[in-house]
């Protein structure tokens, strides 16, 4: 049997590592202004937040429920949802962060990425 002190040390080291990692991830910007909305891992919609000039609202409907999403210049959030836990709504604004908004009950993920390539050019 290990001494209690050993366990405390192990836990403390883990704690420090985890705190450092979360701080690192928090400080690291997502490096993009394109918000991608995934449902079930499928890209449902892509919004360039830098191109948003006035608050724009739209609804993502899945077979599991509805999330109302609000875009403002440079940021995006889930405004309301009929999921049981409302974690996605409580997340608040997503802006310049690598951590995505997740609505697990609806399998919906919103994350920020950089520019995607284009498929065709006009002009």
């Amino acid at each position: 049997m290990a001494k209690t002190g050993t366990w405390v040390t192990i836990i403390l080291v883990l704690l420090v590592l985890a705190i450092a990692a979360s701080l690192f991830l928090r400080l690291r910007p997502a490096g993009g202004t394109i918000a991608e909305i995934y449902v079930d891992g499928r890209l449902e919609r892509r919004v360039d937040l830098s191109g948003v000039t006035v608050p724009t609202r739209f609804t993502v409907e899945t077979e599991r429920g509805v999330n109302v999403i609000l875009c403002e210049p440079g940021r995006i959030r889930v405004e309301s949802a009929d999921c049981p836990d409302k974690v996605c709504v409580d997340f608040g604004w997503l802006q310049d962060s690598a951590a995505p908004i997740v609505c697990l009950p609806h399998r919906l993920v919103i994350k920020l990425t950089g520019d995607a390539p284009i498929d065709a050019e006009v002009g």
Partner: peptide, 20 residues
């Protein structure tokens, strides 16, 4: 697995802290 979003891993450190 469910959302097919590997980037959810970024939550692991925060969740580890909260777990402890």
């Amino acid at each position: 697995l469910v959302t097919s979003t590997p980037s959810l891993l970024v939550y692991l450190p925060v969740l580890t802290v909260s777990g402890i």
